[in-house]
Amino acid sequence: MQQQQVPPEGGAGSADRPGSTQLGTDSEPGSRRVETGSGGRASGGQRFEASGITVRFGGLTALNDVSLHVEQGEVLGVIGPNGAGKTTLFNVVCGFTKPNEGSLTWRGEPLVGLRPHKLAGLGIARTLQGVGLFAGLTVVENVMTGLHAHAKAGFLSALLALPKSDRDERVLKERAMAALDSVGAAGYAGRYPGSLPYPVQKRVALARALVLEPDLLLLDEPAGGVGHDDMDELGETIRHLSGRMAVMLVEHHMDLVMSVCDRITVLDFGKVIANGTPAEIRENPQVLAAYLGDEDDDSGLADADSSPQEA
């Protein structure tokens, strides 16, 4: 594969963590999968790499020479105190923010001139901090929107309501329902998001990201505002997903991060301050210092029960 040129790696980046859940261990009932609409996509090179990413907002350096990588089958945790630059990093990966320096590589090819709407076609999906559901669309329509890149019927067949358009819609709806089913939200298909409990909304948002069967999934605080039971389930879901895709997880709930991630990259003030397995990160003095320096120590790095802080 590629040369390992990620600086602060410290040789700790081993992906094969003992409990690394693979396809054999999943036994959740709701794990019926959406049919893979992306047959010959996998070519072994499902590796995402960011190197030397620097982002400046005026005088503020939100990201400073950040490098990381993640590949299929692993979950990379990205943690750090509030304002560390986690969301900004995701925004760079998604093409919302152009980095001042640095480059991205996906499946062995550089991502240049990235536009957010091209992402879905590249097999990259992301959930947003908060929920980011479409308030005026029903739950199933929300998920169908996630399949936009897969819709085939063109404008003319929609305008004239040709059978092709109906058929296309039916296929999208079935795939959306299957995705909703896989997150246990199929019962809410006809409802509007605003009328649903927050954890259900989060699950719908996850279904919208998953419906495309992405190869790289970016989760920005998926457990924000989610209760304990749901969190365990979420952890299982994420572990399960990593069998089929590369996952990058931004999360403040340390017990979730520690139990789910294969490797963790820690950001503080835009800089990577540590990189390693959960066990290593837990003991890293620099990481502890960063979190302790964070006045409203909401990370719960020490005691793993932090309350959701969500804006």
């Binding site: 957010p116 992402l119 879905a120 308030a135 929107t145 996630g146 936009h148 296309d168």
Partner: peptide, 22 residues
């Protein structure tokens, strides 16, 4: 149709719509 849905999605949340490939 899909177009009506796309228009509403763009109206409701630009960022999420773009991420959905719109």
């Amino acid at each position: 149709s899909r177009y009506g849905r796309t228009w509403r999605a763009v109206r409701d949340d630009e960022v999420a719509a773009e991420l959905a490939g719109i």
